[in-house]
Design a protein around this nucleic acid. Structure first.
Lengths: 340, 340
DNA sequence: CGTCGTTTCCGAAACGTTTCGGATTAAGGG
DNA sequence: CCCTTAATCCGAAACGTTTCGGAAACGACG
């Protein structure tokens, strides 16, 4: 391994001056700097990340802990997240440690272990729950971390989309089309994004001077089979909804299947909207008719997340803190005016 | 942060002795060791991984570089690999760095950068190509690494399955059922596993005293649409095969689709076998009729890969080096005797 | 000629750990 | 009572880097 000492010996300079020359400090002669750079190149010098980490307290490594889920469909999101995040961190020169926890492991403990052992500068937290203990632990330890999503019970740096708007805009769109009995398929009440979306739905009803009690909110795991089951139940109920809003495209997939099984045409017999995360890696599934609703590419989130974490880690770098990502709306062909 | 010095001050011992006590060395009094352990617990001491890494030269971090692919179906394998590997490394206490390269990045260079910066003890290489430059680079630098698969042109530690047997057993099974015109869908000739499988196929023909020229070998990207396209071409050819062997279940999926489009019943009009990697995360797709062929759970590979790499990194630990994983065969319901 | 500021350099300490070589003590054997 | 041995302990150096506090050289200025 080539070290600073090797360069200094080669040039007859002190280690200090070599370090400062390569580090771009001011008090080093332009001539010397050039010589040092040349020698470093010639000898094949690479700064040792571990030694630097020991001295500076920063290792350039960030980590994310995920629990090893075994539900296949949720994995689609996870892969998108892992690949997207990793690519982004790699791009900005941070190394990304992925820790997949055993099903029975305590993830809070894992965060502590990773952080207290040193060598991890910051963390990414995804899918925060209400009063998420991971967030509490990281805050307590004074670790740098960015949450994708939000936990309303704790203050933390986050990157998120405007979920209130997600609920409001899709509901508003359907109300304008004359729908009144709208079913809303979303995650459980313990997630902030779900509560926000429901709040948006209620606001839309109120804005139209309507009673939100006409809407049916269903909380469920957001994967296709669950969506199909829930939609099936809804569609065979006496007062069946004329429109269904799905929290993501996996749920929407289930709704489409249920509609087909019930012999209902979309959008003629049933309107469907969904929020679309625009997954890049699993975009193979296309909808017929093409589905409408809000959209916000998940891939964009990682740029913000990585950027934000970097600025938290490197004090000299000033960048964005909290970030709310833009939201789009596509009409699609899955919703139609209702005349009931 | 609590350091050894803090403990030593607290107990009136030397840093040396505290280190040796916690490190489990011999020349420390049983009493003292107990006191040191207690103090460490009481003060909340956590050994600093960076400092230890600087001194010992080992950081406990391993890395894998993958190129950011955009073909959705190949991602299924990738997720399985990433999650499986990461879980296994996490389990044995090594941190796993995932580096997703930009599409235009030089992966050889990335391996060099990661290794020469220090702080990476070893690497995992997957999907080796013929004369893979990554393997050459890692060997040249003297880095520890394990390859999943094999590059026949270079000597390296590997974990693999017996691909010769994969080709031989599936072909043999079909030949016993009376098939003669067998199509073999596999990857390109630049992969060792594919060449081995074809060699196995030829051996099976020879063992039956038959000319392997009756078989059709098709090299293609191993994803469903390609399988469908290739199968479609084969099935509309004049001398259409009576059986098709698919290199993985994705290809088999395509073959099933093509058969359906051609109005062919499996197994009556067409026998199909496939090698099954038993992907855990994307096992949702079931085959009707259930597909037969060889199988070897990919998930098992990671245990071996991680174990092997660990023994290469930690000199005291003795473990397995090369490893050929066991291979199974399931009859399924997708192949039937042929009377042509 | 002494003082001051600027430019360019360097020694030494520090980050937290491991480990080499030796020091101290007590017990046991003659 | 001295010598050897074993059991415990410790100081100091080292890993490669960054950085604090100065030092040397030099010209400018009064």
């Amino acid at each position: 391994m080539v070290t600073l000492k090797d360069i200094s010996r080669d040039l007859g300079l002190s280690v200090t001056q070599v370090s400062r020359a390569l580090g771009g400090h001011a008090d080093v002669n332009a001539q010397t700097r050039k010589r040092v750079r040349a020698a470093a190149d010639r000898l094949g010098y690479r700064p040792n990340a571990v030694a630097r980490g020991l001295k500076t307290g920063r290792s350039g490594i960030v980590a994310m802990v995920v629990s090893g889920t075994r539900t296949p469909e949720a994995s689609a999101h996870l892969l998108e997240i892992v690949m997207g995040l990793s690519a982004e961190f790699s791009r900005i020169g941070l190394r990304f440690v992925l820790h997949v926890a055993q099903p029975d492991e305590d993830t809070v403990r894992l965060h502590e272990d990773l952080f207290l052992a040193g060598g991890i500068d910051g963390f990414i937290v995804i899918s925060p729950q209400k009063s998420d203990p991971r967030i509490a632990a990281l805050t307590r330890m004074g670790a740098a971390f960015v949450v994708h999503g939000r936990d309303p019970d704790q203050a933390h740096v986050h990157v998120d989309i405007d979920n209130f708007e997600v609920g409001r805009r899709m509901t508003d769109h359907l109300l304008r089309l004359g729908h009144r009995r709208i079913a809303f398929l979303t995650a459980g009440d313990n997630t902030f994004f779900s509560r926000e979306r429901v709040r948006g739905l209620k606001r839309a009803y109120a804005d139209h001077g309507l009673d939100a009690g006409m809407a049916r909110v269903v909380g469920l795991p957001m994967i296709a089979p669950e969506g199909q089951r829930a939609a099936s139940t809804l569609l065979s109920s006496k007062q069946r909804p004329t429109a269904i809003i799905a929290g993501n495209t996996l749920l929407a997939r289930g709704v489409y299947r249920a509609a087909a099984m019930h012999g209902l045409q979309i959008p003629c017999d049933l309107s469907v909207l969904a929020h679309d995360d625009d997954l890049e890696l699993f975009a193979t599934d296309t909808f017929d008719p093409p589905i409408g609703g809000t959209f916000a590419p998940l891939s964009q989130a990682w740029v913000s997340v990585a950027d934000t974490l970097q600025t938290m880690i490197e004090p000299e770098k000033e960048g964005l803190k909290h970030r709310i990502l833009p939201l789009g709306f596509q009409i699609g062909g899955s919703a139609k005016s209702n005349s009931d």
